[in-house]
């Protein structure tokens, strides 16, 4: 998924899948991430950063 925006205070990011579906993702395991970064998401948590 691609990071669209980051809520640093809550450790969450709004991410979009390739089909455009958006979901809130826990980013504690891959911080820091910035909008535009790609992350591998499983069960609502970004497990790995894949870079921009």
């Amino acid at each position: 998924m691609q990071v669209e925006s980051v809520d640093e205070a809550r450790g969450l990011a709004l991410c979009a899948a390739e089909d455009g579906a958006r979901s809130t993702v826990e980013i504690a395991l891959v911080e820091p991430v910035v909008p535009g970064d790609r992350v591998l998401v499983h069960a609502g948590v970004a497990l790995t950063g894949l870079g921009a």
Partner: peptide, 8 residues
């Protein structure tokens, strides 16, 4: 794979 999500 899923356990960290539960833990967090």
């Amino acid at each position: 794979t899923t356990a960290p999500s539960t833990a967090l």
